[in-house]
Write a protein that binds this DNA or RNA. Structure first.
Lengths: 336, 336
DNA sequence: CGCCGCTTTGCAAGCGTGTGCAAATGCTGC
DNA sequence: GCAGCATTTGCACACGCTTGCAAAGCGGCG
C-alpha cells in the first residue's frame, strides 16, 4: 500500500528492446518512429501498464495541458452549467481542467491564479471575482492565456467574454410595454457584479428613453432569498410595479414565489416578470419564466477556441467578445 | 506574447547570493534554513515573481498534490453542491482538484482514471459511473487512493462512502403511514444507479413488512422530466397512490408540478410526497418538500480525512462508510 | 585554545520526459 | 557493388526541483 510504483519509459524500453527515445517518440504525435518499433513499444507499454508522466512531459514541453477554472458559487445553476460546458469542451480539445473554488475568503482569486502559475497551467479562465492587476501581469508574463467571463477588466492581452446585457434590458422594456405595463421595477442583489450592474443600468436607461421611471431595489447576495425579500419591499410600496425585471433567474424564482404566496397575485395577469440566465428551473412548471438565455455553449466554444488559436498578435493580443443573450418566451409576460 | 518565461530557483539563488538548495529549502516546510537566508530568499523571490514549479516538485517528491474528481451530471443541483464541498475541503487541506467530466461517452470513467494516473494524481474521487476493475487495479498499483461515493464496488483497498438508503426508505414508509396514507408508490428513473436501486428496494421491503404493496414506476433519466412523466402514469392508474416516495428531489419537483397542474391535486391533502437529496429547490416556496438530506459536508469531510490519514493497513486498506441521511420535515407530508 | 555537538550550507545525484544532433540503417538507381 | 538519399535510432543534455550526505560554521565548555 502506498508504494507509488510507476513504470517509467526506461522499463518499457528495455522490455521492448529499444532505446528510451523510441518510447518517448511513440507517445509523441508526429515524431519519427517506424511502425514496427511503434507496435513493439505499444505492446510492452500495454503489458506493463505504462502511462506517460504528464508532470515530466509538462516540464520539458513547457506546456502542461492544464487549464485552471476559477469559480465561486459553484453550486449555483448557471455557474454549474457553464462549468459543465467548459470542462466538456476543454476535454475534447485534449486539455484537462483544474478547478479552484474561491468561495471562502476574498483575495482568493489572486491566490487561485498563483496556484495556476505554480502548476504551470497553460491558461486560466476566471468566472468570478476580479483578479488584481499585478497577478494578471504575472500570468501574462508566465505566458498564460487568460479569459475573463462577464468581468470588467481593461487589461490588454486577454480575452474578455461579455453579454450584451444592455440590449437584453432594452428588449425586456419593450416586452413590458407591449404587455401594457406602466410601472417598471428592477430586482437586483447588492453584489455589484459587472453584469448585474449593466443589466440594471441598461434597463433604467432604456426605460428613461421612453419616459418611464423604474423602481430599483437591491438586497443581499444574488439568489432565491434575495428575490423574496425584494418582492416584499416592492409590493408594499404605495406605487406597486406591474412589471419587474429580475437580474437573475434565481432572484426571479424567489420573487414569483413570494408574490404569489404572500400577496396572492397571479403572473402574468397582475404582474409580469422577466429573468436572466435561463437556468433549468426557469422552465419548470411552477415558473415557466420568460428570460434571457446565457449562451453557455457559445461561451465555452469561443473560450477554448481562443485558447487553441495560434498566438497571432492581432487576435491573441486580447479581445472583447460581446455575445447575444436571446429572449426565451414562456408565460410570465403577457404577449403583446 | 507566449514567451513562457518562468523564473527558476537558480535565478532566485543567484540574486539572493545563496545556493539553489537554499531556495528549495525555503519553500519546503520543515526544512533546515536559517532565518537570515530564508528572508533573503523570500525577498529575491518576491522581486523576481518566483513561484515553485509544482510539476517539477511533484516529479521528485512523487506526490503531486492533485486530486482527481470524476463526475457526471455536473450541472445537477446535488452533484454541484457535493462538488463544491469537496473542492472546498480539498483546497483547505492544501490540495488541488482536477475535474473530469464524464458526461459524453461511456467507458469514459476509465479514461478519466487513466488521465488521473498520467498526471500522477495522489487520489481520485469517483462520483459517477463504475470504473472497470482493471483500471481500479492500475490506480491502486500506482499508489493512488481511491474513493467511490455512492457506488457499489467490492474491491479492497479503497474507501466507499454510501448512505443508509434503506433506513431512510423505512423512515419514509413510517411517515406515510402516520399520515394515514394507504396506497404507496415509488417514482424512480431507469438509470439503475446503486443508490437509486437501494432506495427503491428499501422502500418496497419496508412496506412489505407492514403488509403494504407499492406501485413502482421507472422512467428515463434521473431528473425533472422523469418526475412529470411518472406522475402522469401513476395518476391515471385505476389504483391511485396517496403517497409517493421519489428517488430524487428533482423527480419530486417534476412530480409535484405535474400532479398539481395537470391533475388539480393539492399536496399534502390529496397526496403526500417525499424526496431525496435536499437540493436547494426543495426549500423553495413552490415545493417545501419533505426530504432526506445528503450529508454533503460530512461526505467531503470523511473523504479528505481519509486521504490525509496515514496509510495504516487497517484503515487505509479500504473501508465502507455508511452515512446517515436525516429527514427534513417540510410541508409535503401531513404531520402524524 | 581545542574539542564536541548542533545547525546551516553546498554539492551532486536523482525524478521521467522531450528533442537536437549525429550516426546508423534501409532503399533506390546506376 | 556503390554512391546518394530519406528514414529511423540512440546519445546526451535540458527541464526545475528535492534531498542524502558531507563539509563548513558556530557556540559552549573544560
Amino acid at each position: 500500500m502506498g508504494e507509488r510504483i510507476f513504470v517509467s519509459a526506461q522499463e518499457v524500453a528495455t522490455k521492448a528492446g529499444v532505446s528510451r527515445s523510441a518510447v518517448s517518440r511513440t507517445f509523441t504525435p508526429g515524431a519519427s518512429v517506424s511502425e514496427q518499433t511503434r507496435l513493439r513499444v505499444l505492446r510492452a507499454a500495454e503489458e506493463l501498464g505504462y502511462h506517460v508522466n504528464h508532470l515530466a512531459r509538462g516540464l520539458t514541453r513547457r506546456e502542461s495541458g492544464i487549464v485552471c477554472l476559477i469559480v465561486s458559487d459553484l453550486a449555483t445553476p448557471y455557474r454549474s452549467s457553464l462549468l459543465r460546458a467548459l470542462t466538456d469542451r476543454l476535454q475534447s480539445s485534449g486539455r484537462v481542467a483544474m478547478l479552484v473554488n474561491t468561495d471562502r475568503s476574498d483575495g482568493s482569486v489572486d491566490r487561485a491564479l498563483q496556484q495556476a502559475v505554480r502548476y504551470r497551467a497553460d491558461a486560466s479562465i476566471v468566472l468570478s471575482g476580479m483578479p488584481d492587476k499585478s497577478i494578471i501581469d504575472l500570468c501574462l508574463r508566465s505566458g498564460q492565456r487568460l479569459v475573463l467571463i462577464n468581468r470588467d477588466e481593461e487589461q490588454e492581452g486577454l480575452l474578455r467574454i461579455n453579454l450584451d446585457d444592455e440590449a437584453a434590458a432594452q428588449t425586456a422594456v419593450q416586452a413590458f410595454l407591449r404587455a401594457g405595463c406602466r410601472q417598471l421595477a428592477f430586482a437586483n442583489s447588492a453584489a455589484g457584479t459587472p453584469s448585474l450592474v449593466s443589466r440594471e443600468a441598461g434597463f433604467v436607461t432604456a426605460a428613461a428613453k421612453l419616459g418611464l421611471e423604474v423602481l430599483v431595489e437591491r438586497h443581499g447576495t444574488t439568489g432565491y432569498e434575495c428575490g423574496r425579500t425584494i418582492a416584499r419591499r416592492l409590493m408594499t410600496r404605495q406605487q406597486r410595479p406591474d412589471a419587474v425585471f429580475c437580474a437573475t433567474d434565481l432572484i426571479a424564482c424567489g420573487f414569483m414565489d413570494c408574490v404569489r404566496q404572500e400577496f396572492g397575485l397571479s403572473i402574468p395577469t397582475d404582474i409580469c416578470v422577466v429573468g436572466f440566465d435561463d437556468i433549468e428551473q426557469a422552465s419548470w412548471g411552477s415558473y415557466e419564466l420568460t428570460t434571457f438565455a446565457q449562451p453557455v455553449d457559445e461561451i465555452a466554444l469561443e473560450t477554448v477556441g481562443w485558447l487553441s488559436a495560434p498566438p497571432k498578435p492581432d487576435f491573441s493580443a486580447g479581445a472583447l467578445l460581446k455575445l447575444h443573450a436571446g429572449m426565451i418566451w414562456r408565460k410570465t409576460v403577457r404577449p403583446g
